[in-house]
C-alpha cells in the first residue's frame, strides 16, 4: 500500500533508534569493554589496551598462581549447584501445593515465598549472619547454601507457579478419568508440562547464586571465599587484570548456557512470566 512518509514519521523513527541504540550501548558497552580489556598485554586495567594477548587468561588458568581464585570459583559453583538443586526441589513442592488453591492462606504463602525477591538482600545477608552467630555456628559453605537458598528459590517458585497456572485442569481430570492415579498423572502429565518452566527458573536461580554478592559478603570468610567477593578483593588491593579475565570467562559460560537453555526450554519466553 502506498504511504507517504511525513516528517513526524521520520523524527519518530530517528528518536526510537537513538533510544534503542543508547539502551544497547549502556547494556552491551561495559561488557565489550571488559572483554576487550581482558585481552590486554599490559599489567594495568586500562582501556583501550595497548596490545592484545591471552596473557591474563593463561595466568588465570595457572594452577599455582591462581589457586585462591580456583578455590573461590569451586566454592561458588558448589554453593550454586547445591542451592539450586535444593531450592528447585523446595520451590516446586511449594508451587504444587498452593497452585489452584483459592484460599487466602495460599495467597499469603505465595507472597511470603516470593518476598525475598523484593526484600533488601543486604539486610537479609546481615540478618542471616547475626542469626548464625547467635546460634553459634562457624561460617561454612553449608551456611552459604542456606543463605543462597532463601534468595534464589523464589525464581524457581515463580516460573513453576506460572507453568502450573497455565496447565489446563481438564488435562488432569482427563488423566484421572482414564484410570491414572494422582502420582501417575503427576509423573506423566504435570511434570513434563511444567518441566520447561522449572528448568528456566532453576537456570535463573543458578545465575543469581553465581553472582550473588550481598549474602556471600556476610556469610563467607577467607576459608569459604566466593568468586564475586574474591574479585572485589582483587580489585581493591591490586587492580589485577585477572578480574577482567574472570569476567570474560563468566560472560562466555553464561552466554553458552543461555543459548542451550533457550534451545531446550524457550528461556527468553519464560523469563517474562
Amino acid at each position: 500500500m502506498f504511504q507517504r512518509t511525513t516528517p513526524s514519521d521520520i523524527s519518530y523513527a530517528v528518536v526510537l533508534r537513538l533510544l534503542a541504540g543508547l539502551g544497547v550501548l549502556i547494556l552491551v558497552g561495559p561488557v565489550l569493554i571488559v572483554l576487550i580489556t581482558s585481552f590486554t598485554t599490559s599489567a594495568a586495567l586500562k582501556f583501550p589496551p595497548p596490545d592484545l594477548s591471552v596473557r591474563w587468561y593463561v595466568e588465570l588458568f595457572d594452577r599455582t598462581r591462581s589457586a585462591h581464585i580456583h578455590t573461590a570459583a569451586g566454592n561458588t559453583l558448589w554453593v550454586a549447584s547445591v542451592a539450586t538443586g535444593l531450592g528447585t526441589l523446595m520451590a516446586v513442592m511449594a508451587a504444587l501445593s498452593i497452585a489452584r488453591v483459592n484460599r487466602p492462606a495460599a495467597r499469603a504463602l505465595e507472597a511470603s515465598f516470593l518476598s525475598p525477591l523484593i526484600l533488601p538482600t543486604l539486610a537479609y545477608g546481615l540478618a542471616s549472619l547475626m542469626l548464625f552467630a547467635l546460634l553459634g555456628f562457624r561460617p561454612s559453605l553449608y551456611h552459604l547454601v542456606l543463605g543462597h537458598l532463601v534468595v534464589i528459590s523464589p525464581f524457581v517458585f515463580r516460573t513453576t507457579l506460572a507453568s502450573l497456572t497455565q496447565l489446563d485442569p481438564s488435562l488432569l481430570e482427563s488423566s484421572a478419568s482414564l484410570g491414572a492415579s494422582r502420582f501417575y498423572t503427576f509423573r506423566r502429565i504435570t511434570l513434563p508440562i511444567i518441566a520447561p518452566g522449572v528448568a528456566a527458573g532453576a537456570f535463573l536461580a543458578f545465575i543469581a547464586s553465581i553472582d550473588n554478592v550481598p549474602v556471600s559478603l556476610f556469610l563467607s570468610n577467607a576459608r569459604t571465599s566466593m568468586l564475586p567477593i574474591r574479585m572485589w578483593g582483587m580489585m581493591e588491593s591490586t587492580l589485577d587484570v585477572r578480574v577482567a579475565a574472570i569476567s570474560g570467562v563468566l560472560i562466555a559460560v553464561i552466554l553458552i548456557l543461555m543459548i542451550v537453555m533457550d534451545r531446550l526450554v524457550g528461556l527468553t519466553r519464560r523469563m517474562g512470566v
Partner: peptide, 19 residues
Amino acid sequence: PPNQREVGVVFQNYALFPH
C-alpha cells in the same frame, strides 16, 4: 475417585495431552 469409576470423558476442549 474419578480414576476408579471407569467413566470415559470427552471434554469440550478435547484435553489431549499436548506433549
